[in-house]
Design a protein around this nucleic acid. Structure first.
Lengths: 178, 178
DNA sequence: GGTCATCCGGACCCGGACCTCCGGTTCCGG
DNA sequence: CCGGAACCGGAGGTCCGGGTCCGGATGACC
């Protein structure tokens, strides 16, 4: 693969993230190519279809979330791990606001099934540790937790300050000391 | 206005709610007409444009939320009012899941500015009362509150049980007793 | 029951967005 | 330095969905 080809691929992905973040799911291909300083032909050579482009973005997104999760898991205290992951997630959401609404369009399993599974595994560990420490509300499963993270993203996209939103969610997730 | 015309208008609105709830923002006009048992011509006579149809749905939605808010305000205890409104909202969201994602597309002020303002006023009252009673986290404004409700809707759409999600949110909103 | 205005329905436009294709250009092995 | 292969760019093709229009039917008033 030629050097400029790889460079173009990166520029396209970067431009796609920006345009999707600004315009949401309705973002079009031609403006993405323009912002990348590239023709649509080049865009379609790297990503044969629109869904493929979104899929590549999703792969990066999942990788980033998984990395955040692992950094959080490195913390010894289970509840600190939870707060850290929620904060990192909230920050990432506020950065890529509009991006969030395009991923539900394509089924998660279609593009990166193994990455998605890896993410789920880590998340399950995080939740179980917090449960064992008695820090997390017992009804909250990994599914629930993930769903609430999606909600957190929507709240942030709606304009809520991400620190405040994260604090509220964390307070709600914390087990009530009996 | 002829009797069947009014009946058709109602049937179209009902069908639109259903189809939008199922398909999300990508829902198309022709399936809506089919489900209403009506041709597209009739649809466009009642709602001259797609945005107008969505606007009408939004008007109904705002009216319902305002009604919920007023019922909640009738409660004497300020915190009970908050919990009641959140629960009603969560239930409504779980009913009209996909509907939520189509409203951000058109600016709120465009269609029903006065209804929207009335809703905001009621919401401000709800929040102030809860603050005065020391029940609500002091940093939470009406804006924040509304944003968190949007997030709640997203979490529910993502598959979280609405009762659990509402409980988590409420626990997070509650002022921490010092 | 007759007449006419109103309404219904679906067969057509039309614009726009995704995708293709080919001539010109740029980078690597000999 | 040079041949060629890979790559770039943008002008279209195609399809699809929102919106129009007119012949036929239907309901209201006398």
């Amino acid at each position: 693969m030629r050097a400029d080809a790889r460079r173009n691929r990166e520029r396209i992905l970067k431009a796609a993230r920006e345009v999707f973040a600004e315009q949401g799911a309705a973002a079009q291909m031609e403006p993405i190519a323009r912002r990348a300083g590239v023709g649509v032909g080049t865009l379609y050579r790297n990503f044969p279809t629109r869904r493929a482009l979104i899929g590549a973005m999703r792969a990066e997104w999942t990788a980033e979330r998984t990395a955040n999760l692992e950094r959080a898991l490195a913390t010894t205290d289970p509840w600190t791990a939870v707060t850290e992951y929620v904060h990192r997630g909230a920050e990432a959401m506020s950065r890529d606001a509009g991006l969030r609404e395009v991923f539900p369009d394509l089924p998660a399993k279609e593009t990166t099934p193994e990455d998605e599974a890896a993410f789920r595994d880590r998340l399950t560990v995080l939740v179980r540790r917090a449960h064992d420490a008695g820090a997390l509300r017992p009804e909250v499963t990994a599914e629930t937790y993930n769903g609430m993270m999606v909600g957190l993203g929507a709240a942030i996209t709606a304009g809520t300050d991400w620190r405040l939103a994260a604090d509220i969610l964390l307070a709600g997730l914390r087990a009530t000391p009996t």
